[in-house]
Amino acid sequence: MKLRTNQLKEHFAKGQILPVYILSGDETLLMQEAADHIRRSCRQQGFTERDLFPIEPGFDWSNLLEAGNSMSLFGDRKILEVRHPKPKFDDGAKKTLQKYCENPNPDNVLLLIIPKVDKKTQSTKWFQKIEQCGALIQVWPIDINQLPQWIHQRMRQVGLEPTREAVQLLAERVEGNLLAASQEVEKLVLLRGKGPLDVQDIEESVADHARYNLYDLVDEALKGNDAHAMKMLYQLQAGGTEPTVLLWAFSKEIRALAGMAQLLNNGMAAARIMQEYRIWDSRKPIFQSALQRLSPTSFRHCLLEAARIDQAIKGIGEGNPWDGFSTIILWLSGKVRPTQLSIA
Rank of each mutant, 00 (worst) to 15 (best):
I343R: 11
Q132A: 15
Q98S: 09
V20P: 03
E33W: 01
S24D: 08
L188D: 02
G267H: 06
M260T: 02
E184A: 06
D198N: 05
L3S: 00
P106E: 06
D281A: 14
C42R: 04
M268V: 11
I55P: 00
K9P: 10
P296E: 05
A256R: 15
G193H: 00
A13L: 01
A210K: 11
D51P: 06
P19S: 03
S342A: 15
L188R: 04
G267I: 01
A210V: 10
A67G: 04
R337I: 09
P243I: 01
I202D: 01
I114Y: 08
L294A: 07
P115C: 00
E56N: 14
Q16C: 11
L188Q: 06
Q262H: 12
L214M: 15
T121I: 02
Q237L: 09
A344K: 14
E318T: 15
V117K: 12
L179I: 08
H152A: 14
L110R: 10
L8Q: 00
E27L: 08
A207T: 12
L29G: 10
K120F: 11
D219Q: 04
L136K: 05
A93L: 03
V336A: 12
Y277S: 10
V189P: 08
K129D: 09
L147E: 01
M274L: 15
M230N: 13
S24F: 00
N145G: 12
F127I: 01
A93N: 03
V139N: 08
L97F: 11
S333P: 01
W140E: 02
T163F: 13
F47K: 00
E49W: 01
E102W: 05
G58N: 03
V139Q: 07
Q132K: 12
I309R: 00
I113G: 10
F89V: 08
K129F: 14
A210D: 13
Q45D: 07
N105F: 07
F287R: 04
L170D: 02
A271G: 15
